[in-house]
Design a protein around this nucleic acid. Structure first.
Lengths: 146, 146
DNA sequence: GTAATACCTAAACCTAACTTTAGGTCAAGG
DNA sequence: CCTTGACCTAAAGTTAGGTTTAGGTATTAC
């Protein structure tokens, strides 16, 4: 069993954030002794899941839902799995989006490299979109589809 | 030249967002005729860049900076390129992070699939972290490094 | 002539996820 | 004793990126 301060240090989070998570219902099984929060294995595992779900872009209220399902027992396995499946699909499309944005950035880097060499944008502008060199053509195409 | 309403339709953005962008200084060259905004090629190109930079996680105030550099001319090419380079690096690490989060999600999907089949988490919990089947081991390892 | 539109501004409001503040309890150290 | 530090609460404040509201102008449609 750990105090809020110890957990804050372990997870490198401010104490205020842990209190906030608690208030949002993210630790439904959290115990207290004379008012003081006592974090156990359940809460540490919850925090690991919270880190994962936050990275996956899940809102606090949906994380709370998940934690409530965990407290409810095996009958909620399908719901929990469905939540992860939905997030997985969402994340995959996010990553695809970001890869397109990344290609735009790569193209812009290349573009300004040319502009710096030429001292102006005239030549490089004239290359777009049909006379780009092979080295950058795919990147451009990928960045500008959809 | 286009009105704000036409541009809103072209980019599928609310008119209020365009006014907000203007107020934030994202169109430093925007002209007006008797108070009415007139969007030209410069502004349409700016909007394309804004979409790109927003996807890349750039804040409005940094986008403004970029637009000001564009208005300043060729002397700012190196600054502009540096901004894209910095964003590119940032984005690459973001994508790497997201791929790790994705692996966590994949693992959780697999985990709950097992739990559903077994009716409890006992067997699957006992497999972690050293007795995982080949099919999921790499995913688990990738998700739990760092 | 009047009503619906499209434009304008300034300022208030909104949401998420925290953080900060103000005020209070309790135990240990000097 | 009294001060320092770790804990507590409720409530107000913060930030980003908009959105909504209230009030006004100008043009077009009937």
């Amino acid at each position: 069993m750990y105090t809020i301060g110890q957990v804050a240090e372990m997870f490198d989070l401010p104490v205020s954030t842990l209190r906030y998570y608690d208030k949002q219902g993210l630790f439904p099984e959290l115990e207290r002794t004379s008012g003081i929060r006592r974090f156990g294995d359940t809460e540490l595992e919850a925090l690991r899941v919270i880190e994962c779900l936050k990275k996956a872009g899940v809102e606090i209220k949906d994380i709370r839902l998940f934690m409530e399902w965990c407290a409810e027992g095996p009958s909620t396995y399908p719901k929990r799995k469905a939540m992860f499946e939905e997030r997985k699909a969402h994340m995959e499309s996010e990553i695809a989006n970001m890869n397109r944005a990344l290609d735009m950035l790569k193209f812009k880097c290349w573009y300004y490299e040319q502009a710096i060499q030429d001292g102006n944008e005239d030549r490089v502008k004239a290359l777009i979109p049909d006379n780009l060199p092979e080295e950058i053509k795919d990147t451009y195409d990928n960045a500008h589809t959809q």
